[in-house]
Design a binder for these strands. Structure first.
Lengths: 247, 247
DNA sequence: ACCTGAACACCGTTCAAGT
DNA sequence: ACCTGAACACCGTTCAAGT
């Protein structure tokens, strides 16, 4: 039994009316979104969600569906939080702002980034941002490659946020390779590994550096993608042959 | 009981010697790798793995460890299959070849790409390719950014392979949004979505195009990253200030 | 229509006991 | 040291029965 609020139970009508608010799909998704914000998308069970809304697991099925349906609803809700930049911005700046906002939103709901990177959002939730983003690229001159370029930017962004999310999870579990990598920093026989080891060592020594590290990695990735697309745009304009065929 | 081969049972010594080969960590990881190749890293259970080597689940724990330990061993083995290009190749070509090989290897063992994108390989398994890759970038002139650039390339590659893997899984489950997106292709009010819809529609109409689609998306992503890094390299050479600080 | 309460068929993991 | 066999504490999901 879901822990009842132990009311006096004078109500003769339906059980749920005994002081408990009505259970709706919306309320369930609210609770699931809250749980996701607190522990991440993969770190709550349907049974815990049911407990959170003071209901039985079967009630979740009745109102929303199986776990996957709940998760999809949560991801859609999170995607809905994303704000779109001013459409009149230059395209690089438009995407820089979009992706900065995306990181902020996704980081607040761990696990959503991974889900988005792998499956994408539902068509309905995605429409707003896809339309805006592809429109910016079309207007810029990416032609038939606009969709490809949009996907590259969004997926790269989601991927790097997913890495951050999982990194937090790994840190919580005390599985952190940083120290092990750092031991390689004097290995003259492996100069590549030594470079990595030295970077990891710097990171370990400076908490401020470590705090901003992932933001920097994210910005680096986004910036390199934008640079690569800028280069491609010049190629497209030169050849005057927009489209996928001329890769 | 693991389905015994129902031998005559004349052997007096240990149970395992009744016609069954000795169980070793190596044999377990072999079996796990085979299962992964057949169904993907997330689509077998420890109990199935135990059955595959005709042993009890506890035997897996005894020789290898928990499920995570087995999975890590499988991923390490898959990473070991990767061949490194000739170190004298120009850097872009070196990475183009590396990442083409990476896609081939990872696609043969679904689920490994995602794991790699999120956690990276174990330090030991990674050493070979990290050292070679970072060395190429150092020699090219990326200086302190070599590690960042290496990670960008490898993570982008893994991410796109992971998307392919999961796409296959989703197709098996008949959750495919392509058709839904295609319905937007005449929506003049949503020109961005219409562009996407039209791309999806083309894909649905031409099986050959669809077959090569993900390879193309992968190559596009890799190429844009390389272009972006080439651009960055020029900036670094101009400023003559190698390092992370000048982002 | 909505909720209850129990059940089903799994899962990863642990452990005392055997040899 | 290695294996057995059973158990534990979960999980998502289903379903007949209640109101």
């Amino acid at each position: 039994m879901p822990t009842s609020s132990s009311g006096t139970g004078q109500r003769p009508r339906s059980r749920a009316a005994a002081g408990l608010p009505a259970i709706t799909a919306d309320r369930i998704i609210d609770a699931a979104t809250t749980l996701t914000g607190e522990r991440g998308l993969d770190n709550w069970t349907l049974r815990e969600l049911a407990r959170a809304v003071e209901a039985y697991p079967a009630v979740i099925y009745h109102h929303v569906g199986d776990r996957d349906a709940v998760v999809n609803a949560v991801v859609d809700r999170v995607v809905g939080l994303l704000e779109l930049p001013d459409p009149d911005l230059p395209w690089q700046q438009w995407f820089t702002e979009l992706l900065a906002g995306l990181r902020a939103v996704l980081r607040a709901y761990p696990g959503c980034a991974r889900r988005l990177a792998l499956f994408g959002p539902s068509v309905e939730a995605a429409t707003r941002s896809i339309d805006a983003g592809v429109r910016v690229l079309l207007r810029t001159g990416f032609g038939r490659e606009s969709v490809l370029a949009y996907n590259l930017l969004l997926m790269t962004a989601c991927q790097f946020v997913a890495m951050e999310d999982d990194r937090d999870g790994a840190l919580a579990l005390r599985i952190d390779n940083t120290e092990e990598y750092a031991t390689y920093r004097e290995r003259a026989d492996l100069p590549g590994m030594a470079e990595l080891g030295s970077a990891m060592h710097d990171l370990m020594g400076d908490p401020d550096l470590a705090a901003g590290y992932y933001a920097q990695v994210y910005d680096y990735a986004v910036q390199r993608c934008l640079d690569g697309l800028t280069h491609r745009l010049a190629e497209l304009r030169e050849s005057d042959d927009p489209g996928l065929t001329a890769t």
